[in-house]
Simulated scan of single mutants.
Amino acid sequence: MKIEIIATTVQEAKVAEANGADRIELITGIAEGGLTPSYGLIKEVVNAVKLPVNVMIRPHSYSFSYSEEDINTMIEDIQIVRELGANGVVLGTLKEDRTIDVNSLEKLLPVAGNLDVTFHRAFDEVDDQEEALEIILRYPQINRILTSGGKANVTEAVDRIKNLVALTVDKPLHILAGSGLTVDNVDDFVSETGVVEIHFGSGVRMEGKSLRPVDPEKVREIVRRFQ
């Protein structure tokens, strides 16, 4: 089991590492679903921890449909992520009709090179997730899809996640389940869906609130469940 923790500060990244997490998703703007963090924050986190650090590439929270200027911004941000030695990037692009924007994706992926790539929860905005999955599978650079199965809370999408996991068996891509997982519900969820990667935001924060710091005890307890 791979356990990914959202970090918004250097201290949170250190807490995630010290308590057994496997990977960090580094973002800013957690209340907006995650935006691209600053150059300085990326640099400091990468230098502070040995864990893989995957950096959100999302220039704004208006939508997942991006203009040419947005794509140029994302390209520059990916280049900075590579220069600073982060492990990977977290990105996603949609067209206005809520299908995968292949043209934009094909501008971003070459810049990512050999970075680890996660297609983020833009996937949860599409109307047909199976069709979207088939499109994403055409790009072997993409290592995983972060998804809540199209629901606000992933625990309401057990059957959908189970199906997506089944569709990616023996494929070079994993389903990273997130949004709504907590210490209390993660055991049953993993058992029912068969996911091998899980993602935590507010579920490992103090008082379960997104704008509170990461709680080391919650991280430690989740890691203990899957050792």
Rank of each mutant, 00 (worst) to 15 (best):
I3V: 12
E4T: 03
A7V: 10
T9H: 07
A13D: 02
E17P: 01
E17G: 02
A18N: 14
A21D: 01
D22L: 12
R23N: 00
G29H: 04
G33P: 03
G33W: 06
T36S: 07
P37C: 06
P37H: 04
A48P: 02
V49L: 08
V55S: 03
M56G: 02
R58N: 06
P59K: 04
P59R: 03
S61F: 14
S63D: 10
S63T: 11
Y66H: 07
E69T: 15
D70M: 12
D77G: 03
D77L: 07
I78D: 05
Q79R: 15
L84H: 06
N87A: 15
V89F: 05
L91P: 00
R98C: 13
I100M: 07
I100H: 01
L105N: 01
P110E: 10
G113Y: 10
N114Y: 12
V117H: 00
F119H: 05
F119P: 00
R121G: 01
V126Y: 00
V126D: 01
E130K: 13
E134S: 15
I135G: 03
I135V: 15
Y139M: 06
P140W: 08
I145H: 01
I145G: 01
L146C: 12
S148D: 03
S148A: 13
G150T: 08
A152V: 13
N153A: 15
D159S: 15
D159P: 05
R160Q: 15
K162I: 12
N163W: 05
V165H: 02
L167K: 14
L167Q: 12
T168M: 08
V169W: 10
K171I: 11
P172R: 09
L173C: 11
H174N: 11
I175S: 04
I175D: 02
I175N: 03
L176G: 00
G178C: 06
S179Q: 05
D184I: 05
N185T: 11
N185P: 07
D187E: 13
T193V: 09
G194K: 07
V195S: 02
F200M: 03
G201W: 08
M206L: 14
M206C: 11
M206E: 14
E207L: 13
G208C: 12
S210F: 14
L211H: 13
L211T: 14
V214T: 07
R220V: 09
I222K: 06
R224F: 15
F226K: 04
F226M: 07
